[in-house]
Simulated scan of single mutants.
Amino acid sequence: MSKRSAGILLYRAEGPRVLIVHPGGPFFTNKDAGAWSLPKGEHDPDEDPRAAALREFAEETGTSLDGRDLLPLGEVRQRNGKVVTAWAVEGDFDVDSLHSNTFEIEWPPRSGRRTSFPEVDRALWCDPDTAREKLNPAQVAFVDRLLEQLKR
């Protein structure tokens, strides 16, 4: 069974602008185009994806969105096989206040040392064209679906 993730595409209607995040850790340090994501994370098959999306947004940004109406954006399958379910919500977020959970790995490899890294090391408000350049290619569909919803 494919791994599953759920996330939130925060947006500002003026512009419009969307919030994307850059994964932390040594593997993504020098990666930009195609490496960014919406704030998201894995969940168990029996966990409610909407609840997981809200939890993961809070863990990756340090900001809670509980109690907000979420606009469903559907699912995409990434090249690695992971299925991502997303919702959009209008809101604001100060990228300078980013406070992400951390994870620990052996770094450098085979060194025997454990090092902590943030799950997310940067956040960016950007226009849809910039988001299309920076996002994981499969997640671009979420931006396009949001734009379609905003036209209605």
Rank of each mutant, 00 (worst) to 15 (best):
M1K: 08
S2M: 08
R4T: 11
Y11C: 04
Y11L: 03
A13L: 11
G15Y: 11
P16H: 02
P16N: 01
R17G: 05
R17S: 09
I20K: 01
I20L: 11
I20W: 01
G24F: 00
P26Q: 05
F28A: 13
T29H: 11
D32I: 13
A33N: 05
W36S: 00
G41W: 04
G41A: 08
H43V: 15
D44C: 06
D48L: 06
P49I: 15
A51K: 07
A52T: 14
E60T: 09
G62N: 05
T63E: 15
L65C: 00
D66S: 10
D66N: 10
D69V: 04
L70H: 10
L71K: 10
P72F: 02
L73F: 06
G74E: 03
R79I: 09
N80S: 13
G81S: 11
G81C: 07
V84I: 07
W87H: 03
E90C: 13
E90V: 12
D92I: 10
F93T: 05
L98N: 12
T102C: 05
F103A: 03
E104A: 13
E104P: 07
T115G: 06
S116C: 07
S116I: 12
F117T: 01
F117M: 03
P118V: 14
E119Y: 02
D121A: 04
D121G: 03
D121M: 03
R122H: 14
A123D: 05
L124W: 02
D129V: 15
D129Q: 11
R132W: 15
E133F: 10
K134E: 09
K134S: 08
N136T: 15
P137H: 08
P137Q: 09
A141I: 09
R145H: 08
R145L: 12
L146Y: 08
L147Q: 03
L147W: 06
Q149E: 12
Q149C: 08
L150A: 09
L150H: 09
K151C: 12
